[in-house]
């Protein structure tokens, strides 16, 4: 029916998704190592608009036996009929550093991700360096995923003191036990966020490449890189754009209503 009606509705749906992304960023404003996502909306692929008209077979002829007409198409121009939520991208900006004084907290400065493995042997990557020790003396994350060193799981055993230094070496009673694996990707923005502060590699992100000289800060946690001010402005933007699109929808509704009522009178 009315093209504009659906167009306005699509804009409202997009702004809803925009708000979903912003709400998730704000919910994770205290999540260590969290990477915020930026929503991107785009116009629906442009359509070539045509005018349908009757065209004479012989150009210029308006009368005579050749006046056989058929329907032809005359291009008008491009028109986009909808707004779509195209993608959302992970930001890679460094989060603020918070000194916690916990010996098993570590933060990566600059590029890189810690490598962790679940019980089934699946490998994930994380920026959240809040590590724990289990009863077997292995280094792991809060969710029980085993932190990977250069030589597999990091065994700490019954050590009296454990610390992580700025090169990523795990010191157990003053001796280097292992070095934390720190890897990066060709295009880290393509990593898939799967929750639990974990990231999964895929075809597009490329294979993990070890970082030559990782730079770590021990006894420190990297905070979420979400900026409350920009999220708030994005939220206002989404809310107002939603409102504006709703007005467009209502105007269409008004117009259609007026059209129906004025034709009904006669």
């Amino acid at each position: 029916m009315n093209r504009g009606l659906y167009c306005a509705a699509s804009a409202m749906l997009v702004q809803e998704s925009m708000h979903d992304v912003v709400a998730n960023n704000l919910a994770n404003v205290s999540t260590a190592g969290f990477r915020g996502r930026i929503p991107v909306n785009k116009t629906f692929p442009d359509l070539l608009m045509d005018r349908i008209e009757n065209i004479p077979v012989t150009p210029g002829a308006t009368t005579g036996p050749n006046q056989i007409r058929y329907r032809g198409k005359i291009p008008i121009g491009n028109l986009a009929l909808a707004n779509v939520f195209s993608e959302d991208t992970m930001t890679l900006k460094q989060g603020a550093m918070h000194v916690t004084d916990a010996p098993l907290d570590a933060a990566i400065v600059g590029d890189g991700f810690f490598v962790v493995q679940d019980g089934a042997g699946n490998t994930f990557y994380t920026r959240s360096g809040q590590f724990q020790i289990n009863q077997e003396g292995q280094l792991l994350t809060h969710d029980g995923l085993i932190v990977q060193g250069e030589g597999g799981p990091i065994e700490i055993g019954e050590a009296a003191s454990v610390s992580i230094n700025s090169e990523g070496q795990v010191l157990v009673d003053g001796e280097v036990a292992d070095t934390l694996q720190v890897v990066t990707f060709e295009t880290p923005t393509w990593l898939k966020q799967i929750g639990g502060s974990l990231l999964a590699a895929n075809e597009q992100s490329g294979n993990p490449v070890p970082v030559e000289m990782p730079s770590l800060v021990s006894r420190t946690l990297e905070q979420s890189n979400v900026d409350v001010v920009s999220e708030m402005s994005r939220m206002i933007e989404a809310s107002r754009a939603y409102e504006a699109a709703s007005k467009a929808l209502m105007t269409h509704d008004d117009e259609t209503g007026r059209l129906i009522s004025s034709f009904m009178k006669s």
């Binding site: 919910a27 994770n28 993608e87 991208t89 809060h142 923005t189 639990g196 075809e203 597009q204």
Partner: peptide, 25 residues
């Protein structure tokens, strides 16, 4: 992410909408 959109090109990041946060410990 990486879903093909048209021949020869694919979505760089896709649409992944997070559903919030939880206390992990």
């Amino acid at each position: 992410p990486g879903a093909p959109v048209e021949p020869g090109s694919s979505l760089p990041t896709g649409v992944q909408v997070g559903l919030g946060t939880r206390v992990v410990g």
